[in-house]
Amino acid sequence: MQADWSDERLMLAYGAGDADAFAMLYDRYRGSLYRYLLRQCGNPALAEELHQDVWFRVVNARTGYEPLARFSTWLFRIARHRLIDHYRKHAPQIPAHSVPDAADDDLDEIGDLIERLPAATHEMPHVLYERQDAAQRISLALADLPPLQREVFLLTEEGGLTLEEIAQATGVGRETTKSRLRYALGKLRHALRDLL
């Protein structure tokens, strides 16, 4: 019966004390949220840690939850903020030229920060090219994308967010988002052209 419920209704039911509603909601988004985080940070262990933190935040926010937006938009916004927190916290480990100002709250500079993040070592193209299956090829193609373009693509594919929702979540204009998505799709098509 709960399988037919909307995400928002499930979250409200969980806020009212229904643990099964949360299990249903978690089952719907566990994979997509994890992949979003994994593609963004490039480290499975870190992705699992971030994944767990995001869901803990959802649990803690259950009583104050209001369905002002779609649940997926709310969830991936939390995930994005968690990623930014992670980037800020580990800014010293990022090469100095990659971090303009880790303490700056300005969204553009956060975007720059994400833009300049290096890909994880095991996601580097020369590592991934050694394995030639499709999954690795797509991982390679995504890792090769600029982070902001990759973010828009992942929010579209994993989060199911619209351009407006992505624009709102990332703090940029709709046209900017649209442009980033167009570039991302074009680069992916080019990288995967022999598999499509």
């Binding site: 566990r30 994979g31 994890y34 992949r35 994994l38 499975p44 992705a47 699992e48 994944h51 499709a134 999954a135 797509i138 594919e157 994993e158 799709l185 992916l188 098509r189 995967l192 598999l195 499509l196």
Partner: peptide
């Protein structure tokens, strides 16, 4: 790009 989207969904299967 439906082809890219389909290809991505088909092969992106990582789970926690």
């Amino acid at each position: 790009d439906p082809q890219v989207s389909e290809f991505y969904r088909k092969h992106a299967t990582e789970q926690p």
